[in-house]
Structure formats: structure tokens, C-alpha cells
Amino acid sequence: MQDTLYEMVKKAQNGDQKTLEHLLRLVEPKVTYAASKVPVQEREDVKQELFLHLMEMIQRYDTEKVPTLSEYIEMKKQRTKDNC
């Protein structure tokens, strides 16, 4: 069975280098696309900066504050109710 994104983030935070690399490969197409929007001579630098930022965000992401599905649904219901 494949790990969920949540499980992969936790593993990466605990020092699993292969999982961190896998996470970065998952977002590589989006990083490449974002970098394509800057001048050619800056693209590699931008990609490196984005990957560094992503690695920092993975380390800082608080997995303990991730709501369960039922909590998320309740939050969405409450927001919808508040906006009416």
C-alpha cells in the first residue's frame, strides 16, 4: 500500500531522505512550470530556490494540526453557514 501525502510528510520530517526526494519529484512538474514563467537565464536558480523553500515548508509543516476528514467537512459546513 502506498503512503498518503500526510504519511510521506511525516517520514520526511523524521529524516527519510528517499521520501523527501519522492515528495519533491511529485511537485517537480509544477516547479518546472512556475520556473518557465521567468527569463531563461534565471530558471535554474528559481527552481533551486523553490525546491529549497519546499524542503523548508515540509520540515515546518505541523502535521498535528491537520484535520480529519470529518473535522474538515464540519469546518466547510460552518464556513458555508457563516457566509449565508
Rank of each mutant, 00 (worst) to 15 (best):
M75S: 14
E56L: 06
V46G: 09
E42C: 03
T80S: 14
D16N: 13
L50P: 12
Y61F: 08
T4P: 05
V38I: 03
V40S: 13
V40H: 01
K77G: 08
Q13A: 11
L24D: 13
Y6D: 12
V27S: 11
V31L: 07
M55A: 11
A34Q: 11
M57W: 10
Q2T: 05
M55L: 12
K81C: 04
T4I: 01
Y72K: 01
L54T: 03
A35K: 07
L20M: 15
V31P: 00
A34M: 12
P67I: 00
K11M: 00
E64W: 06
L24V: 06
A12T: 00
R25F: 12
K65S: 14
I73G: 10
E74R: 04
L24T: 03
V66F: 04
L26P: 04
T80P: 06
K76A: 15
T68G: 06
E56Q: 10
V38C: 07
E74W: 08
A34R: 08
L69T: 04
R25Y: 08
T68F: 03
V9N: 11
L52K: 15
S36H: 06
R79D: 04
K47F: 10
A12G: 00
N14P: 02
A12F: 02
M1T: 04
K47E: 09
V9M: 10
Q59V: 08
S36N: 02
K10C: 08
R60F: 07
Y6N: 09
D82T: 00
E44L: 11
T32Y: 07
K81P: 00
K77E: 01
Q13E: 09
Y6S: 01
V40C: 05
M8V: 05
C84E: 13
V27F: 14
Y61E: 02
R25T: 08
N14K: 12
V46D: 04
E71D: 12
Q17R: 07
Q41F: 01
L24S: 11
M8Q: 13
T4S: 05
T19D: 01
T19F: 06
A34K: 03
T68L: 00
E74M: 10
S36A: 07
E71P: 03
K11C: 06
K65M: 14
K10V: 03
L24R: 07
Y6Q: 02
K11H: 06
T68S: 02
N14L: 05
K18V: 07
H22F: 07
L26A: 10
G15V: 04
L50G: 06
S36E: 03
T80K: 13
E74I: 04
Q48L: 15
Q17G: 14
E74K: 01
E74L: 13
M8S: 12
D62G: 10
K77C: 06
T63A: 10
L20K: 02
E28R: 04
E64L: 03
Q2F: 07
